[in-house]
């Protein structure tokens, strides 16, 4: 874990962004207890790009929901930037989701009757930001994902990749410290998937911590760290010394467009 040691040496980054200890989550089906997480320990350090992998039912989605403060653990600790999230009130949790966490979903989850710009503005309305500043920030976020010119289009008028970019802009607009992406490329073709991974990698390069769930090894290959789940436990935590670079692939793919759009090995 030489990367972690280096961060710790930096001093100001000595504390993990996400610290999870013995996290347990049980679901109740009638009187039967269904354990989804059986004690997970994990630290995610600022600036990491982590892929959570595992078969369905392995607990990775449950873990994401807990990380995203959408759900409360049955037992265990979850510190986000040192804050014990498991002790927060519903309103405080809402504020954490609003300010500290950005969500990107597999099926984009944009509100169809709103324009791209209004969708991106939505998180800001919940922090009571004045309309003018809200609009300016939303435009900046859309510019960041390259969709400034599509600001007044509705989601149905955008391609899947564009919709996901709007969703990323919405996740970024409050300047969160953590971006959670649940199968962000699950509904996209491979070419578009590489573009989305390119955006995520670029954001990560600029300092954003990203945790994404995927069951595709192709996508995980873009991430420096890969955490494997099985039966509610972490069974593997490996560093990928040479993650794929989406931007190189995109240009590579462009140069060899005649040979097809295959972008992953």
């Amino acid at each position: 874990m030489e990367q972690r040691e280096q961060w710790q040496a930096d001093g100001h980054r000595a504390y993990p962004l996400v610290r999870v200890r013995q996290l347990v989550k049980n679901y109740y089906l009638g009187h039967t207890i269904v354990p989804a997480l059986r004690g997970v320990d994990l630290d995610v350090w600022p600036g990491e790009l982590v892929a959570l992998m595992g078969p369905s039912g392995s607990g990775k989605s449950t873990f994401m929901n807990l990380l995203g403060c959408l759900d409360q653990p049955t037992a265990g600790r979850y510190l986000l930037s040192g804050v014990p999230v498991d002790e927060l009130s519903p309103n405080e949790l809402a504020d954490v989701r609003n300010r500290s966490i950005g969500f990107v979903f597999q099926n984009f989850n944009l509100l169809p009757w709103m324009t791209a710009l209004e969708n991106v503005e939505l998180p800001l309305t919940y922090m009571q930001m004045p309309a003018e500043e809200r609009r300016r920030r939303a435009e900046m976020a859309l510019t960041l994902v390259g969709l400034r010119t599509r600001a007044h289009h509705r989601p149905t008028e955008l391609s899947g990749g564009q919709q996901q970019r709007v969703a990323i802009a919405r996740a970024l607009v409050t300047s969160p410290t953590l971006l959670l992406a649940d199968e962000p490329t699950g509904n996209l073709d491979s070419q578009t998937s590489v573009q989305i991974m390119g955006i995520l990698q670029e954001l990560n390069r600029r300092g954003l911590t990203i945790i994404l769930v995927t069951h595709e090894a192709d996508i995980a290959a873009y991430c420096r760290r890969q955490v494997r789940f099985r039966d509610g436990r972490v069974v593997g935590d490996t560093l990928n010394s040479e993650p794929l670079e989406a931007r190189l692939q995109l240009t590579h793919d462009h140069d060899h467009e005649q040979e097809g759009r295959k972008v992953t090995s």
Binding site: M129, L144, L172, V173, S175, R206, G207
Partner: peptide, 24 residues
């Protein structure tokens, strides 16, 4: 590339400026 995003340059390494604290 036809579909590649072309965002404006950003200050320093931040992806967006920090949000001021708003009273809710």
């Amino acid at each position: 590339h036809a579909t590649l995003p072309q965002p404006a340059p950003l200050e320093r390494s931040a992806f967006l400026p920090p949000v001021h604290a708003y009273r809710r």
